[in-house]
Amino acid sequence: MKTESVNDAIGEWAGAAAAADTAASQSDHVLPGAPLFSIMPRRGWVSLNLRELWAYRELLYFLTWRDIKVRYKQTVLGVAWAVLQPVVSMILFTLFFGRLAHMPSDGIPYPIFAYAGLLPWTFVSTAVSGAGDSLVGSAALVTKVYFPRLVIPCAAVCAAMMDFAIASVVLLAMMLWYGVAFHWRMLMLAPLTLAAALLAAAAGMWMSALNVKYRDVRYALPFLIQVWMFATPIIYPASIVPERWRWLLGVNPLSGIIEAFRGALFGRAIHWPDLSLAAAITLTALACSAHAFRRMEREFADIV
């Protein structure tokens, strides 16, 4: 409820402000020659404005940190959820695909084979679904304060990285258990994780922008993510896909990334043409997605 006493407060401020007013007109306050920025309708091609995004990197950090902090608040299991999801999936897939269906796994024990695929996959799916809901979930921010909106879905992707790091500990334990030899190729895991993050960011920011306008995305997204999972060699090796359909996997950049992830992990040869194609598609998707986001961005505050 509003109170009349506000006026008194504002009145006091007024006094001081009026004093500042006169002070200002006396002192020669220097304005920049050119405007700091100009506001006008944008049409057609919109620049990404990466410089501004860089200026707001601290906000990206704080929003990521908030997402991580808040994610497992008031849950009994806490961060164990980050581990539980890929581990339970691994157990289920091991039972049904490994034991019952005798799915081949390129000579790697099926549990660790599956987990090595599920780990980056869980990261990508968590990041994409988190980013997809992020803008709508931040409606209060979007309508009240300005900052580059791209920060919001990006923060969701960065926050998913935390789960990835936690779940990686399980992978490490399994590698010791199964006696997987450590190898210099494992250095590739870092750039591969980055590639997965960029791909997730590309999909996530596009979904988040679409979600603002079409809430259908909220319902379609979990389904699409499920389809994506089966279209990616996670619980099966790419080698079981018949040669003439292999190009279909190539179109999906995530399959190149995950195959390379496994290759690096188990010291197998990395299929560079596939990986290069995946990287190229990822970067192209990221650029297109960011531009699409910037174009849709101008409507966000009005329709979110």
Binding site: L31, S38, I39, M40, R298, D302
Partner: peptide, 12 residues
Amino acid sequence: ITEPTAGRVDLY
């Protein structure tokens, strides 16, 4: 927060 449909603003 929102973009104008027409016109221009310069902020110094």
